[in-house]
Nucleic acid binder design. Structure first.
Lengths: 201, 201
DNA sequence: TGCAAACTTGCAGTGCGTGCACTTTTATTC
DNA sequence: GAATAAAAGTGCACGCACTGCAAGTTTGCA
């Protein structure tokens, strides 16, 4: 009847509660000192239910948002036809980071703390999340009219993911106050310049 | 007395035996259907000893060779002063892949099979292995006279790692018979060209 | 030969992750 | 609104990963 249904809304809530609980606890004690039981208790569900939503603690903390992959891929395709593939990726990623909702900002702050202690998770956030990268590869491939197994789409997507990872790393650095969009733009510009010369920064 | 000592040689042998056993079994049944007990039994040691060498199964099959990181970093620094940082990284990586000993080729073939089923491990092989990437960042930073926390060294190292990952992926593709060195060179060239235009390949 | 350091091993314990059967909640149909 | 189906939550049991700890065993050196 209604647009979404009570069931789907509850699922979303449970997932969000688990993810938020995992992030809060991990930011406090470190991920290794948080058990699945702790997380599910804090979220008000049984430990067994936790595994119905996430494959493990890592995924609850740094699990890729299943929506961002398709969205980025779509955005790459939808960029104006005049721009190159690199510019299309650049625009798509910058649009993505510009769109972080206000009610998720506190979650990102928690994520920053957790990821700082666990660099392995950084790769899963965007690039290493093969899921998202696959969508990006597909978008690029469609845009340039190549197969998704060709070198160019794979390399462009991987390099863009690497740029994201570096931008995130620097964003987490408390000594660098620049916003994420600026850092990401710098990284992508440097990339599309062929990493020619080290900037004076 | 002698150059290395019996103890060190035995440690090397045990480590190699464990790694080889893990790779062989994982290539046969898939990594998920191999227990640590299987691996250590095949290697002739106790399960407890396995954990004295590796933190887990993943590290045994895709664990980064602890020597490659420092070696690549050193090579980057040792390139002729005339060449740019990008060219230095390019040369260092190509020298690295060209130097794979013959007696390790069969291990790489096994690794190919295992990694094909577990894309997550691909990142650990070179790029994701933060260990190796840190050395690469340090080498680049020293070469260009920047700090290891600056954008340029981090991004160049990350992008080079991404190129390695893509080259490996394509190398694992049975439809592409080109050698690893060629694939890697293509990827790095495309990268240093700013990913400007999709090649006709 | 004897001592000290390093490597190996067994044991016990905690926690992860999964399959299965069962209960509870939500959606649909008559 | 009651019956039925579908989906989510839960408890239980099991195998395995991984970690200290306290032995035993091997190696290096005097």
């Amino acid at each position: 009847m209604n647009g979404e249904g009570l069931r789907d809304r509850k699922k979303r809530q449970t997932r969000a509660a688990l993810s938020r609980a995992a992030l809060t606890l991990a930011a406090e004690r470190g991920l290794d000192h948080v058990t699945v039981e702790d997380i599910s208790t804090a979220a008000g569900v049984s430990p067994r239910t936790f595994f119905n939503y996430f494959a493990g603690k890592e995924e609850a903390v740094a699990g890729p948002d299943p929506e961002v992959g398709p969205r980025v891929g779509r955005r790459v395709v939808e960029q104006p036809v005049g721009s190159t593939a690199v510019d299309a990726v650049k625009a798509a990623l910058l649009a993505e980071v510009a769109e972080v909702p206000t009610d998720e900002r506190d979650l990102w702050l928690l994520r920053m703390r957790v990821v700082q202690q666990h660099p392995v998770l950084l790769a899963r956030l965007f690039a290493g999340g093969e899921e998202a990268e696959r969508h990006l590869v597909a978008g690029i491939a469609e845009r340039v009219g190549l197969d998704a197994t060709d070198l160019y789409p794979m390399l462009l997507a991987a390099a863009a993911g690497a740029a994201c990872r570096v931008a995130f790393t620097r964003w987490f650095d408390p000594d660098d106050p620049r916003p994420l969009a600026t850092l990401l733009a710098d990284a992508l510009d440097l990339l599309s310049a062929g990493l020619a010369n080290p900037p004076n920064t």
